[in-house]
Design a protein around this nucleic acid. Structure first.
Lengths: 248, 248
DNA sequence: GGGAAGCGTATTGCATACAATCCCCGTCGA
DNA sequence: TCGACGGGGATTGTATGCAATACGCTTCCC
């Protein structure tokens, strides 16, 4: 049961609620990269003042999910290819560390939770839809939680969401980003306490995800695809749109 | 030349200025862990409204340099021993990654800058004073900048400042945190392109820093030392202070 | 017809006002 | 003497107002 709609949330929680709502909307691609995020409209929708919306947007900007240009407001971030590379590099470093911390230290209860999550990934994949993307990312976040290192958890969460955004820009639409079998293999290695193998698997896994998406688009000789993020960044639409209608 | 005092900074820059000022004050221990940070007083001192101060404090809270308790305001964070361990763990993961990225890729110009920085560390150490602490941390940040990975740079910066705060709580006062000779060795390994050796050196370096401080205090059987952060966190002073004077 | 300048509107940046909350401290009762 | 209770002051949480800036449109000139 979520919560009575008229109940006031405790102090400071409403800004965070806005933050989480926007964050999730971005990751699930309900708000596509480049979308403008006006403070008024968001505040109106959530029933809060611009102050709280600004706070949420600022946090998202720090995380790299939105771009804020002074006097011009916030938009859903459009990561460059360089930023994409950076994010995956850092992610690999963090997740390898995580494998070291986790290998051989998973309790049966933790194993059960992780296996259950993988099962839900399978379901979501079968059904299709945006949930699949989120769940795949959350597997990594769940591992981070299990590690017991709160800072690592925060960083993994940030970089994961950033990667999700990147995949939404450079990846093929709704393609299965994480091969779920790879998740299973990683979990097995962790269970066996084979830190080196887990790290190697994770490394390969992330490499594969990155390549399936970013490098794929970089290697695609199709100039239109390559230019897409730059065009959208400038607010340019492809030719089939002669006259822009502000709000359909 | 800094800037004419009456010149208005561009939009959005004043909040960042407050953020940087507070951040530096915390790292250099001008604001000790546990110190209260009232919005009014800070805003008055910097000539900005509470709005901007809040923005700065929020950012610092995200970074973990200040704690914000709803309705009770912000204080300079008092990291627990567990948070200290987490921070050093994550830092090791990030800096090992950084070594991989840097090994064998330093240009002569970059090498010169890094060597120059180490020289300045030596000077500051000789003179003593709080600058030494900041410079030691900035060596790592400088390496991150050199890596060309902006995200890594941000994370290393965050975790470094957090570690600096931790050392200010658990470390011996003004002890030389980073052995400068270790910085030299690391740089040499990077120059030679020996990624594995650089990573190992960095690992040992950070391990040493952590042990010189955190573990040292954890092993110290002196209960008073162990309890200090918890006491301060609760606003408790040791016995020699019978009546508290609010503002000397 | 194309481009530059000017105006009006929409939106942001920041400060401030008001309400809510908490803490300190004095008072009261056991 | 100790603890519970409650008022006053200080501080934060949030909304709103005003000024500044940028954008889109019209108009004007070449």
């Amino acid at each position: 049961m979520p919560r009575p709609a008229d109940a006031q949330l405790p102090a400071g929680a409403r800004a965070q609620a806005v933050y989480r709502a926007l964050r999730r909307a971005i990751i699930e691609q309900a708000l596509r990269a480049g979308t403008k995020l006006p403070e008024d409209a968001i505040g109106e929708r959530f029933g809060v003042s611009r102050t709280l919306v600004r706070e949420a947007l600022t946090r998202l900007a720090i995380e790299g999910l939105v771009d804020i240009v002074p006097n011009r407001g916030a938009t859903v971030a459009l990561p460059t290819l360089e930023e994409a590379r950076d994010a995956f590099e850092v992610r690999r470093g963090l997740e390898r560390l995580m494998m070291e911390l986790l290998a051989g230290r998973l309790s049966p209860a933790q194993l059960a939770i992780l296996r259950d999550h993988i099962a839900r990934e399978d379901e979501a994949r079968a059904r299709g839809g945006p949930e699949s993307i989120r769940l795949a990312g959350e597997f990594h976040l769940l591992l981070a939680q299990t590690s017991g290192n709160a800072l690592l958890e925060r960083y993994i969460g940030e970089v994961s969401s950033r990667c999700a955004l990147i995949l939404s820009v450079y990846g093929r639409p709704h393609s299965p980003e994480c091969a779920i079998s790879e998740h299973r293999q990683i979990l097995a290695a962790l269970e066996n306490g084979d830190a080196a193998r887990a790290a190697a698997l994770m490394d390969a896994h992330l490499q594969a995800v990155a390549e399936r998406a970013v490098l794929a688009s970089a290697q695609a000789a199709d100039i239109r695809t390559l230019l897409a993020p730059f065009a959208e960044r400038e607010g340019l639409a492809p030719t089939p749109a002669p006259g822009r209608k502000p709000r359909p």
